[in-house]
């Protein structure tokens, strides 16, 4: 059954022109941003932006840059789910013999594959750039922060699951996309303002987007390297008050997984309760 669900989702998705366009766009934009970013350098002795592209920091850098495009992936999922409502094909598939759970699982499979694809994209491009920029590295360096790839995978899946939730609530592509963007850009940030800084960091968008925080540029750039063996003391953003205190990654990750589980539960509940 799973195999058939997968085949059907692939037929629907891979033959969809908008999907091809958005995924190509996603690839090109990501590639362009990392190429441009890798060319930036600051002419301050003791600093090297190139450090951001060396193992193991390249994983943090690339996961962060890739996370900018998660919104694009989420919008793709909104369109894929919204289409099933507007073409009335969710209905038809139930009539033909799927259960409501099958419908949700089918879309879950696609989300899994899109997240897996972008994980591989980050992994392949990260490896290429890492090899180019690192003069000599050991395998241990390569893998020491590679768990960030898994974190990125969960984040990308999280964005898409939130997208799916919006698509299921509004059942209309344009409305879902607008509400999704408004929620990310305005609604949650405004609501957060009503709470104390300690509480603010527990909101879902905040949590999920903080899975891949921006790399600590100054600290990394000032690390000792082959070129600037002089070295300077590492900067710490938090200690100099440039960025607010953040939850440790492990806590953020657990909370993010909790939120994702909650959204998945809501998706199943809404789909079961409402008529198609």
């Amino acid at each position: 059954m799973m195999k058939k669900l997968l085949k059907n989702e692939l037929t629907k998705t891979l033959n969809y022109a908008s999907f091809k366009v958005i995924m190509t766009l996603h690839f090109i934009l990501f590639l362009m941003v990392i190429i441009v970013a890798s060319k930036i350098d600051i002419a301050v002795p003791g600093f090297s932006m190139r450090n951001l592209f060396r193992f193991p920091d390249v994983w943090a850098t690339f996961a962060w840059i890739a996370s900018w495009f998660n919104i694009l992936l989420a919008i793709m999922v909104i369109v894929l789910v919204g289409n099933e409502f507007s073409f009335r094909t969710f209905r038809q598939q139930v009539i033909n013999g799927l259960s409501i759970n099958d419908l949700v699982i089918g879309k879950g499979i696609i989300i899994f594959f899109i997240a897996l694809y972008s994980l591989l994209l980050v992994f392949v491009l990260g490896s290429v750039f890492g090899i180019i920029f690192s003069h000599n590295f050991e395998l241990a360096d390569l893998f020491s922060k590679s768990y960030l790839l898994a974190v990125y995978f969960i984040q990308a899946a999280g964005y898409m699951i939130i997208g799916m939730l919006f698509a299921i609530i509004f059942r209309n592509n344009s409305l879902s996309i607008i509400m999704f963007l408004l929620y990310f850009i305005f609604i949650e940030p405004i609501i957060r303002r009503f709470f104390s800084p300690e509480v603010r960091q527990f909101f879902p968008v905040k949590i999920i987007s903080h899975l891949t925080p921006p790399p600590e540029v100054l600290a990394i750039a000032s690390e000792k390297t082959m070129e600037n063996s002089v070295g300077t003391t590492n900067f710490d953003f938090e200690s100099i008050g440039l960025i607010p205190h953040q939850l440790p990654l492990s806590v953020t990750l657990l909370l993010a997984i909790g939120f994702i589980a909650l959204f998945v539960f809501l998706i199943f509940q809404i789909m079961r309760k409402r008529d198609l």
Binding site: T11, K12, T89
Partner: peptide, 13 residues
């Protein structure tokens, strides 16, 4: 085998 209301298919397939 059911046909309910309108034909429901993926237009791009």
């Amino acid at each position: 085998g059911s046909l309910v209301e309108t034909p429901n298919f993926y237009p791009y397939l």
